[in-house]
């Protein structure tokens, strides 16, 4: 599925300083029953965001109008648990294009890259700086620059480099996906399969 190309993103950010945000919180299993990729943003963080009578929980960050933006900033070990890509879909469909944390669970990180969300891993110290900057000014702007692989707090100019492999970076900047690549090397795959033991 096509996604928006990612180059430089300047946006305010939504803070979620909680560790081990698992994919059951991002999108509970009972909302995984769709056969199409539609409407998952409505149920993003469903049980943290809404009471059981569907009224919004006032103390949850997504219900607080002072916070908004295309960048979600989470605590350590973000996206742990289930492999459900629906978690990344929900984050994308809600409007986020970038998730920042000091540590991501592997499958969530891979799923995000595959659908056009940039996971940015920063040091614990820099993560703390971002949380403090948003706390001081919810409208503070953050720049995520993929070509330069930097994340910057624009108010102070404080910046940090982040890692991403060259192949995935190229894909994200151009909106490519892996299946195009795999289709182009079908001959190699067929030769490999022919020699397989199983």
């Amino acid at each position: 599925m096509a996604y928006d190309k990612f180059t430089v993103l300047r946006s305010t950010a939504v803070p979620m300083p909680i560790e081990n945000v698992d994919t059951d919180q991002i999108i509970p299993a009972r909302f995984l029953k769709a056969t199409e990729r539609k409407g998952f943003g409505d149920n993003l963080f469903r049980d943290w965001r809404y009471n059981s009578d569907d009224t919004p929980k006032k103390d949850f960050v997504l219900n607080n109008p002072i916070y908004s933006g295309k960048i979600l900033v989470g605590g350590k070990n973000f996206g742990s648990g289930s492999s459900r890509e629906h978690a990344a879909w929900a984050i994308y469909d809600y409007g986020f294009r970038c998730v920042v944390s000091s540590f991501f669970a592997d499958i969530f990180k891979g799923n995000s890259l595959n659908i056009g969300i940039l996971p940015v891993t920063v040091s614990e110290a820099f993560l703390d700086k971002i949380f403090k900057a948003i706390e001081a000014d919810p409208k503070t702007a953050v720049e995520v620059n993929l070509p330069e692989q930097t994340i910057t707090l624009l108010a102070t100019g404080e910046s940090e480099k982040f890692d991403i492999n060259g192949y995935k970076k190229h894909n994200l900047m151009n909106g490519y996906d892996d299946i195009d690549y795999l289709q182009a090397m079908k001959g190699d795959i067929e030769s490999f399969a022919a020699a397989s033991l199983y």
């Binding site: 289930s82 492999s83 459900r84 890509e85 629906h86 990344a88 499958i107 891979g110 799923n111 595959n114 659908i115 192949y167 996906d177 892996d178 299946i179 690549y181 795999l182 289709q183 079908k186 795959i189 399969a193």
Partner: peptide
């Protein structure tokens, strides 16, 4: 475990990245 994009890759090519 893999995500749905990768399920699609395996269906299409028997490979993932």
């Amino acid at each position: 475990g893999i995500g749905t994009s990768e399920v699609e890759m395996v269906l299409a090519s028997q490979c993932i990245m």
